[in-house]
Amino acid sequence: MSLALMLEQLLNGVQFGLMLFLMSAGLTLVFGVMGLINLAHGSLYMIGAFLCAAVAGATGNFWLGLMAGIAAAAAAGALIEVTILRRLYARDHLDQVLATFALILILSEGVRIIFGPFPLYLNVPDMLRGSVDLGITQYSRYRLALIGFGIAVAVGLWLLISRTRLGIQIRAGESDREMIAALGVNIRWLYTVVFALGAALAGMAGALVGAIQSVQVGMGEPVLILAFVVIVIGGIGSIKGAMVGALLVGVIDTMGRFLLPRAFATFMEPSQAMGVGAALASMLIYVLMALVLILRPKGLFPAHG
């Protein structure tokens, strides 16, 4: 097994992890600040991808599409926060799970009614087509750009939370909800902004990933489940935890699927090793999540307490 192959798979894992981070960051903020389990976060990812594909298809400009996808996801997020989710903050988790499960059904069918049952395909922008020579291997220019993009957003988010007024309010909201109301912060407004921010990040991830894969109804749910794994591993409410969790999940999942079958092939018959290796590799991150929950029930980086 060559160094080039290891490097390429590692890059694949990091790229996957950073896209998961965009999804998880919003999810973890929403839970940290509002205490809401939002299953419909994957639907916002889907909305971002569909709007990006539609606008990019109509205008021929990917960047316009990306902006439209982010804006649409943020708007959709703000809308459902104001009309529906706001009523659920005080409810128990069961009600939150059910209401947001209902939202998945509604949003998925809504998108299917508007865009039809076929997948859409988005072209990557011309300047990011083709591959880059990394010395020991070639790598897709677009995937490399995704890594850069993910890091830039992570830095931006960190600055936002640590250096701005909004960030202070968010952090205050995570540690003590009554206190920030007492400090005169408009809490309803803060909640809507936080939700829209998380939605925008999910929409951005959907649009960016949509350009290399495909844009279809139901694309958000597998990513949603992985994002939950990420925030539970990282510690709910913690952006740092989301980053570490996302990279762990991205790299472990990618490398596991690649290395486990090979590892089993050293002492098993190849075709059998493929099956056993693949079966165990697909369970790996859930085993990791269960282990973290059993050993550190609040995750690796608990946001408070």
Binding site: V232, A290, L293
Partner: peptide, 9 residues
């Protein structure tokens, strides 16, 4: 939420 998530896992 942790109970919800671990049963899901």
């Amino acid at each position: 939420i942790f109970f919800i998530m671990i049963t899901l896992a």
